[in-house]
Amino acid sequence: MSDASITGPEFAGKGYENEAQFGDYFALLKPRVMTLVVFTAAVGLLAAPVAVHPFVAFCAILFIAVGGGASGALNMWWDADIDAVMTRTKRRPIPAGKVTRDEALGFGLALSGFSVVFLGLASNWFAAGLLAFTIFFYVVIYTMWLKRWTPQNIVIGGAAGAFPPMIGWAVATGGISVDSVLMFCLTFMWTPPHFWALALFMRKDYDHAGVPMLTVTHGRRVTRNHILVYTLLLAALAIAMAFTSAGGPVYLSVALVLNALFVKGAYDIWRRDEEICEVDNFRAERKFFKLSLLYLFAHFGAILIEAVLSGFGLGGWA
Rank of each mutant, 00 (worst) to 15 (best):
K147T: 01
A73L: 03
F184M: 06
R91W: 04
G313M: 09
F22W: 14
D273A: 01
E274W: 01
F11C: 02
F133L: 14
K147P: 01
F312R: 07
R286V: 12
L74Q: 11
I305A: 14
A307R: 05
M86I: 12
A160T: 03
V37M: 06
D207P: 00
A260Q: 05
G316F: 11
A60V: 06
A47F: 04
Y142N: 03
T150A: 09
M144H: 12
Y25C: 01
I269Y: 09
C185R: 02
L237V: 08
A122T: 04
L111K: 01
L252G: 03
L28R: 06
V181G: 09
V52T: 15
I6E: 14
A260S: 13
F184N: 09
P249T: 10
Y16L: 13
A80H: 10
W169Y: 15
E274I: 08
L130H: 10
F126R: 01
S115C: 11
A162S: 13
T134K: 08
W317D: 10
K147C: 03
G44T: 08
A266Y: 07
R283F: 08
L314W: 14
I82F: 14
T100M: 03
I227Q: 11
W125R: 07
M34S: 09
A260T: 13
G8A: 07
Y142P: 03
S245M: 01
I94M: 00
L200W: 09
A57W: 09
E285H: 04
V50A: 15
I154N: 12
A159M: 10
A199M: 11
G248C: 07
L111W: 05
P193Q: 09
P95N: 02
G157E: 13
A132C: 10
L309K: 03
T87N: 04
L261D: 05
A284D: 08
V181D: 12
V56C: 02
L121M: 13
I135T: 10
M86N: 14
D273H: 03
V254D: 15
A159T: 04
T244Q: 13
V211I: 14
E306G: 13
L198M: 07
A127R: 07
G301V: 00
L256M: 04
M76Y: 02
A209D: 15
A122I: 01
G161N: 06
A132G: 09
A255H: 03
K147H: 09
F201M: 07
T89Q: 11
G315P: 05
H194T: 12
S310P: 00
W77Q: 05
V229C: 04
L119D: 15
L29M: 15
T35R: 12
G315Q: 10
R283Y: 13
R224L: 02
L237I: 07
L291M: 07
G120F: 12
L109D: 12
A65I: 00
M183Q: 13
I303F: 15
L232H: 04
E274C: 00
N225L: 02
L296M: 15
M183Y: 11
A266T: 10
V50N: 14
A12P: 06
Y267K: 00
L74V: 05
N259C: 10
M34I: 06
L228G: 10
W270H: 14
P151Q: 03
I276C: 00
A284G: 00
P165W: 14
H53W: 05
F126G: 08
V308G: 04
K90E: 10
A197K: 00
Y267E: 08
A122S: 11
P95H: 02
R203D: 05
S245G: 02
V263E: 06
D81I: 02
L36K: 06
